[in-house]
C-alpha cells in the first residue's frame, strides 16, 4: 500500500471565480479505500472544491492527480454525483435513461449501450432499490428517489473514486440510511468516496476522514483526530472575510473591472 499513489491528490488548488466562493491553496492527499467527508459552513467552497477537482471550473493555480495521473487522463476512474437541484427533473427522460448516462463515459462518442451496459444499469438500480421504477418518468419520483437515481448513475460509471455533492440533502431518513449503507459497501469493495456533507451531527459517524473546509483546508485527517470542538470552531467561527474580499478583488482587477 505504501507504494501506490493516493486516490486523489491536489496541490495548491486555488479558485477565484466571480460569483463563486473562493478556494485557496487546497492540498489534499486522500488514500485509497476511504470514506471522506467535506464539511464546512455555507459558502466555504465545498461544491466549488469538487467541481474544481473535476476541472469544471477554471483554476487559478494548482493541480489535481487521480491515482497518480493528471485528472484528464483518469476521468473514467472518477464517478460524480452532482447536486440534485442542478438539473431539471421535468426533463423528458425516464429513470433507466438517466442511469444509462453513467455508461456514456465508457462508450465514448458513438457506440450505443449494449445489452451488457443495460444489465449493469439494472444492477445499479437494484442496488439503490429503484429497479421497479426503471421506466418511470423522473418527475414522478420523490426527492429521495431522485437522489438515488443519481447514485445509481454514478455506480453505473464503475469508477474507483466517487465525488458526491450533498447526496444527503433533502432526503428522508430511510433514504439517508440506505445511502450510507451503500457507501460503506462501496468502501468495502476498495472504492474511495469523497462526500460533501452539511450535517455535523452525523459527520462523525459516517466518515473515516474529514476535510474541514472554509475557503482553505482548516484541517484534514482521521475523523477521531479532526472532529474536535476547537477545530470545528476554527472552521465555522469567524468568516475569513478579508481573505475572500482580497482574493475576489484581485480577480476583479485582473478582469479589468473598476474596483
Amino acid at each position: 500500500m505504501e507504494t501506490t499513489a493516493p486516490a486523489l491528490e491536489t496541490h495548491d488548488l486555488s479558485v477565484a471565480y466571480q460569483k463563486k466562493p473562493v478556494l485557496y491553496g487546497v492540498d489534499l492527499e486522500i488514500p485509497e479505500g476511504k470514506l471522506v467527508g467535506i464539511v464546512g459552513p455555507n459558502g466555504a467552497g465545498k461544491s466549488t472544491l469538487i467541481k474544481a477537482i473535476m476541472g469544471l471550473l477554471p483554476l487559478r493555480s494548482g493541480w489535481v492527480k487521480v491515482f497518480g495521473q493528471p485528472f484528464a487522463k483518469a476521468k473514467r476512474r472518477v464517478g460524480y454525483v452532482p447536486q440534485r437541484e442542478s438539473v431539471d427533473w421535468d426533463f423528458p427522460v425516464n429513470v433507466m435513461d438517466v442511469v444509462l448516462m453513467g455508461r456514456y463515459g465508457h462508450l465514448g462518442w458513438i457506440k450505443r449501450p449494449s445489452a451488457a451496459d443495460r444489465e449493469i444499469a439494472r444492477n445499479c438500480l437494484d442496488q439503490v432499490n429503484l429497479l421497479p421504477y426503471a421506466n418511470r418518468q423522473i418527475s414522478n419520483l420523490s426527492g429521495g428517489q431522485q437522489q438515488r437515481v443519481f447514485l445509481a448513475r454514478a455506480l453505473a460509471q464503475e469508477s474507483d473514486l466517487y465525488l458526491m455533492d450533498e447526496p444527503f440533502a433533502g432526503v428522508d431518513a430511510a433514504t439517508e440510511a440506505a445511502i450510507i449503507v451503500l457507501l460503506k459497501e462501496l468502501k468495502a469493495r476498495g472504492k474511495t468516496i469523497l462526500v460533501v456533507h452539511h450535517d455535523l451531527t452525523t459527520a462523525k459517524d459516517y466518515f473515516d476522514m474529514l476535510v474541514l473546509l472554509n475557503m482553505r483546508v482548516v484541517d484534514y485527517g482521521d475523523t477521531a483526530d479532526v472532529f474536535t470542538v476547537e477545530k470545528l470552531q476554527k472552521t465555522y467561527g469567524g468568516r475569513l472575510t478579508l481573505l475572500s474580499d482580497v482574493t475576489r478583488q484581485e480577480a476583479r482587477q485582473k478582469a479589468g473591472e473598476e474596483v
Binding site: 484528464a72 476521468k75 438539473v87 427522460v93 448516462m101 456514456y104 463515459g105 462518442w109 460509471q157
Partner: peptide, 22 residues
C-alpha cells in the same frame, strides 16, 4: 450519431463534462 451526447448535454451538462464527453 451523437444522440446520447446531446441528451447528456441537454439534461446535465456538468455530468457530461465530468465524464470527459465533448
Amino acid at each position: 450519431l451523437f444522440y446520447r451526447g446531446l441528451l447528456v448535454l441537454s439534461f446535465n451538462r456538468e455530468f457530461g463534462e465530468a465524464m470527459g464527453l465533448p
